[in-house]
Design a protein around this nucleic acid. Sequence first.
DNA 1: GAAAAAGTAGAGCGATCGCTCTACTTTTTC
DNA 2: GAAAAAGTAGAGCGATCGCTCTACTTTTTC
Lengths: 183, 183
Amino acid sequence: MTGTKERIASELERSFAEAGFAGQGVEALRAEADVSLRTLYKHFPSREAMILGALEHRDATYFRWLEGGPQEGAAHVLHPLVRLGDWLGEVANTGCLFLNAWAQYPDSAAIAAVVRDHKARLAGEFRQRLARVAPRQDTGHLAETLFLLHEGMTQAARLQGREIAYEAAMHAARAALAAQNID
Amino acid sequence: MTGTKERIASELERSFAEAGFAGQGVEALRAEADVSLRTLYKHFPSREAMILGALEHRDATYFRWLEGGPQEGAAHVLHPLVRLGDWLGEVANTGCLFLNAWAQYPDSAAIAAVVRDHKARLAGEFRQRLARVAPRQDTGHLAETLFLLHEGMTQAARLQGREIAYEAAMHAARAALAAQNID
DNA sequence: GAAAAAGTAGAGCGATCGCTCTACTTTTTC
DNA sequence: GAAAAAGTAGAGCGATCGCTCTACTTTTTC
């Protein structure tokens, strides 16, 4: 029941991540999910809903991916960037699924909302980590910088390769943290 | 003759930048360019060729946009980031046209090539500027960092707004330059 | 174990989309 | 000013795409 929907959402995430949002029609998505067209449409009543389902699933997947890691110091703050580096090496280096979806459907308010929500939560992640490590400092703009490095690493990795982008982002992040005496 | 092709390419760039690569069929592009279908296809014999034409035009537009500016010091190196900030405020804040096109056509070798070429040239821009300002230092990874900040600013601006993204990128860039005693 | 819910399999609809082609006119070339 | 090139206007093709619907089977619920 909800199990079926979950399973389909998981396959949709995988499918869109692998082959992109264009070029892949509903029939192809159906085949990947290995369900009938009727069942697919029952849970996701339009192609747009399928994309939303995939993005919401990815949102959960990614925040689970960020769990754990060092609990103190600069390493606590940098952990999401390290994990992004892992993701680019182990899972996929094909840009950001959310931004790719948004690029495809610039007029969909629902997709824009999911993208903004995910990214806002990600920016919040950096804010919380900084607040934990340096509770007496104003680290608001530092959080924005780390978020920007996260987005930059994702895109640069496609173009320059994972290693270069990872080193560049970590280098910039450490310099920015050092400038505020966070280590 | 070449004048017509130029004019069409310019309209295609504007059109794709405004309305994205999806949702806009060839007929809509034809109307925007204000030519007949036959003329459009004469110069750009497929929709993919139209996208390539728009990207090549944007490539020229953007490098012209970067011309001028301070010729020395950190300001010379930072100039492309400043100009990107101007672009996001004055022209458009809708992500990167190249990456958006690539997201739409992940299987097109021709589009991938144009995107890679443009981005490689942009990375080279930072390398050259650093070589001019600090000829005796190894600034290779610094150039990669600045390129990453350029890409990050482009994406973050859509999500956090131009001001925040601009400040965050400049902040990180200055910290990275300062760490290597470039001012 | 009867009733309801959830599933399969797949035909086929209306609409759209990229592209071609025809018939004709305007502009350019030498 | 004749010939060639470049243009307009738009009908219409084959293919694809998102989605609906029918007929039937399997699973779940109580």
